[in-house]
Design a protein around this nucleic acid. Structure first.
Length: 280
DNA sequence: ATGTCGTGAAAGTCACGA
């Protein structure tokens, strides 16, 4: 089974490109971020024609996430426990929730499509919101994994954090000045790993970015960031047989500024499968 | 030139977010 995550930066502006890629690459499940549309505006027909069912979480032109699957999709959730809200110019505990998370189960694998808040600036209220959001995600996921220790779960999406200096090739992103590389953001990402999640792509694709700003020739100069990840529970990580970062998708007509990140799961490798012939 | 995108509202350009 092939699972991918892609910040598509408007699904309506790129639906043809996305569906073409899905079919060409034989992707079974795609987690999308920044669909930038309301649920009722999502281009379901194009995905259905290609054999995919899609669940969406979009409220307006901002943010928005979705999961497309050609292997079934069930148990859809559109928030996680403790997820904070945000409203510019306001503070407090009861702010509106943004459409930044959707989870669903496809072929027995729990997949979350996540669009972590950008942060905007180190002194911006959005930055504190980002850290709160990540801490709630960690707590919710840790509780879920404790209650479902044998279940494969993947947190996929745009984390808006470059976890190491090697993940930052953009000369304008500077520690102490910029979001995405601050110690607190990196600590929040590390806390996800410490809670029992594994970056299943990095060991297989140790170098390369997943995002390049549209401005300033960032892609031709290869001045990008690695900020899109697939983090898996141990049961998920044990299934991973391969991974890829589809850099080619940053090229051509009307690309997103992010590219797809892909993993292949070997569902036949279940060690408890007594029917599997033993080979010595 | 924050040198590019995408969206919506108002409008044939701007504000916002990234």
């Amino acid at each position: 089974m092939r699972i991918a995550t892609w910040n598509v930066n408007s699904v309506r502006a790129r639906v043809g490109r996305i569906v073409d890629w899905l079919g060409r690459e034989e992707v079974d499940v795609l987690a999308m971020q920044e669909i930038k549309c309301k649920d009722e505006q999502f281009p379901h027909a194009e995905f259905e024609a290609a054999g995919y069912e899609v669940v969406t979480h979009g409220l307006n032109q901002w943010n928005g996430v979705a999961i497309a699957s050609r292997v079934g999709i069930e148990d859809v959730a559109r928030t996680f426990d403790g997820m904070p809200g945000f409203l510019k110019g306001h503070e407090g505990p009861d702010l509106p929730l943004e459409p930044r998370a959707i989870g669903a189960t496809a072929n027995g694998v729990r997949v979350w499509s996540l669009y972590v808040p950008n942060g905007r600036g180190l002194d911006d209220p959005h930055y504190a919101y980002k850290l709160d959001w990540l801490e709630a995600l960690r707590g919710s996921t840790a509780a879920w994994m404790a209650a479902n220790p044998d279940a494969p779960i993947a947190l996929t999406g745009d984390f808006n954090i470059a976890p190491t200096d090697a993940d930052n090739g953009d000369p304008t992103i500077i520690e102490g000045v910029s979001t995405h590389v601050s110690p607190a953001e990196r600590a929040a990402f590390q806390a996800l790993l410490d809670s029992g999640l594994t970056d299943v792509v990095r060991p297989r694709i140790p170098e390369g970015f997943t995002y390049w700003d549209y401005k300033q020739l960032r892609f031709p100069r290869n001045e990008g960031l690695r900020i899109d990840f697939i983090l898996g529970s141990k049961p998920f990580a044990d299934l991973v047989a391969g991974a890829g970062i589809h850099r080619e998708e940053r090229k051509g007509d009307a690309p997103s500024d992010h590219v797809p990140v892909v993993v292949d799961l070997d569902l036949s490798a279940d060690e408890d499968d007594d029917d599997r012939p033993m080979i010595f």
